[in-house]
Design a protein around this nucleic acid. Structure first.
Length: 470
RNA sequence: GACUCCAUCGUCUAAUCGGUUAGGACGACGGCCUCUCAAGCCGUUAACACGGGUUCAAGUCCCGUUGGAGUCGCCA
């Protein structure tokens, strides 16, 4: 059996978006599952719209997603010789011909056809004129006179199109550059691509490409057309649906594994399983169970998926991931131990790394900057809180070592010795430490804060007085 | 308009060769837990687009209708 070779072929006219990311994921998965090769090709033949910065951005997003490729990326602008040779071969074998029609003339033909209610097509008037190369001339592929071009699609099943629906397409533009379909066929063939996975907006290109493969005497790969991703209104994806560039999800603090998991699961399934590690995806994704119908993008489920991944990864790894986000919002990055404590404290309370870093804020600012939520302070830091706060300062000031376990024991002893109820005194401590009724376990919170900061907060809380209105 | 593709809860989806009280997940809602907020657990809500066939039996096969999407470039 021959090796499976897949590819992802973006054009550098923008950042990598989630639609492209998903087909890249499927292609990468299919190659990795089969122990094959995965290639990258930059389709930069549209000189006017292609930009180097987008190529850089796309490659960076691919790396961030963890989709590695097996050879240096191929750039179409560097392959003019291969395209020229292919066109030359087609001309020589009679599968192609020079066409001297101007774009205006062709457009007139289309207008006429549209007016008559038939399919706008080039009428093939230069087919047998025996023209040679001339300024302004392009080369067109000579289609078979009749027949049906059929193929078996990995996701859609059998598809067939009558050649009568097609026209003699341009394969070499007047400026000498190849057109999309031409370049794709020459390049996929050169790369030895066996499985072409792409968006189903390309489905109408496929018959044309098959004709090209045949005319060139090349083996036709297996095609798989993945449906487009829709927005929440089941219309084409737009910004307001949360459909953005991969780089934006990175900046928002999503985990690459979570994005890959969610996107892979959109349009593909493995029984009832929702959460997959990267290894599981590689193990299970074999190109089957791809859904032929379009799927709507759901930001809420993506968030849930990300939250699940954040909760199941090692704390040390999570700490490494969140560090840049802590720095980005201007907070002092604590030591490793404290940072891990913060992650443990808040990871079940945040769905993104960005939100997680933000949740750290009350504990990472100094007591001087701690603000109290009026409602919570009024309720829990009133006059009856005074004795408790004084006692806390006493017992925690002496607590040794200053660790969660010891602090927990000290707190519980205080509650028991004074015949109190945990639930009546805990809010006092919580409000004093956090500034509001939120956050995680109090013992770990204090450990993360450290003795000095904990005492400072207790003192500040003891000095709190309600503001007198008026 | 022509051609092509698509059609299960609001959303993502499952349902081996036709036989299921049509399952799971997200969301929403309710409950439990609880010092708070979450998380977690339990539960509720909700779908085979429509109409014909074939068959003892159709979400599953066939035809049609409706609806949606894509393409119709010397863009990719």
């Amino acid at each position: 059996m021959t090796q499976v070779v897949t590819r992802f072929a973006p054009s550098p006219t923008g950042h990598l978006h989630i639609g492209g990311a998903r087909t890249a994921i499927f292609s990468w998965l299919l190659a990795r599952h089969n122990g094959g090769k995965f290639h990258l090709r930059i389709e930069d033949t549209d000189l006017a719209r292609s930009r180097q910065e987008y190529t850089d951005s796309i490659l960076a997003s691919m790396q961030w997603l963890g989709l590695d490729w097996d050879a240096p990326p191929m750039y179409q602008t560097q392959r003019t010789q291969a395209y020229d040779e292919a066109v030359e071969q087609l001309l020589r074998t009679g599968h192609a011909y020079w066409c001297a029609c101007t774009p205006e003339e062709v457009e007139a033909m289309r207008e006429k056809a549209r007016a008559e209610g038939t399919k706008p097509r080039y009428d093939g008037r230069c087919r047998d004129r025996g023209l040679g190369k001339a300024p302004g001339s392009c080369v067109r592929l000579r289609l078979p006179d009749r027949g049906v071009i059929a193929f078996r699609d990995m996701v859609k099943g059998d598809i067939g199109v009558d050649v009568a629906e097609l026209d003699d397409m341009v394969i070499r533009r007047a400026d000498g550059m190849p057109t999309y379909n031409m370049a794709v066929v020459v390049d996929d063939s050169a790369l030895g691509v066996t499985h072409v996975l792409r968006g189903d907006d390309h489905i109408s290109n496929t018959p044309r490409q098959i004709v090209l493969y045949q005319a060139l005497g090349l083996p036709v790969p297996i095609f798989g057309h993945v449906p487009m991703i829709l927005g929440s209104n089941r219309q084409k994806l737009s910004k307001r649906d949360g459909a953005r560039a991969v780089i934006e999800y990175e900046q928002d603090g999503l985990l690459p594994d979570a994005l890959v998991n969610y996107l892979a699961r959109l349009g593909w399934s493995h029984g009832n399983q929702e959460l997959f590690s990267r290894e599981e995806l590689v193990e299970f994704f074999d190109g089957t169970n791809l859904n032929p119908s379009a799927a709507a993008f759901d930001p809420a489920k993506l968030d849930w998926c990300n939250a699940q991944h954040m909760r199941s990864m090692p704390l040390e790894t999570l700490a490494d991931r969140v560090r840049p986000f802590v720095e980005a919002i201007g907070l002092q990055i604590p030591g490793e131990r404290a940072l891990i404590g913060l992650c443990k404290l808040f990871r079940e309370r945040a769905t993104t790394l960005k939100a997680l870093a933000e949740a750290f804020r009350p504990l990472l600012i100094g007591s001087r900057d701690l603000a109290y939520a009026a409602k919570d302070a009024t309720k829990h830091l009133g006059e009856t809180a005074g004795p408790h706060l004084a006692a806390f300062a006493e017992i925690f000031g002496q607590c040794e070592p200053f660790t969660a376990d010891a602090l927990d024991a000290a707190f519980n002893a205080y509650v028991a010795d004074n015949g109190l109820q945990f639930k009546t005194v805990a809010p006092v401590l919580r409000t004093a430490l956090m500034g509001f009724m939120g956050g995680g376990h109090l013992d770990l919170t204090m450990e993360v804060l450290g003795r000095e900061e904990t005492l400072a907060r207790l003192a500040k809380a003891a000095a709190w007085r309600p503001e007198v209105a008026g």
